[in-house]
Design a protein around this nucleic acid. Structure first.
Length: 87
DNA sequence: GTTGAGCGTT
């Protein structure tokens, strides 16, 4: 748990289905609160998603709601949500 | 058209 102040709340999202895009990611996390930014990491060589991405919240409320939930479901698949290494 | 541990820019 991070008690340090941060201007943005970023979460690392992994175990994403291949069919999930950044829009789907933001839509899912928007249920917890306002998503400031959502991005999926893509591979230039393959052109498909690497299977993980980042979600940034603008409110600690949304960040806490998403972080408090250890199990996330998207596209019928379980997602691994953790704190991002870098803000 | 494929794959599945990992912390970003397709």
């Amino acid at each position: 748990m991070s008690n340090f102040i941060r201007h943005t709340y970023k979460l690392f999202v992994g175990n994403l289905p291949w069919t999930v895009g950044q829009k789907e990611l933001q839509t899912y996390f928007s249920k917890f609160g306002h998503v400031s930014s959502a991005a999926i990491v893509y591979d230039k060589q393959q052109g498909f998603s690497k299977g993980y991405g980042f979600v940034t919240f603008s409110a600690s409320d949304a960040y806490n709601s998403a972080c408090n939930q250890n199990v996330h479901f998207l596209e019928g698949r379980v997602l691994s949500v953790k704190e991002a290494n870098n803000n």
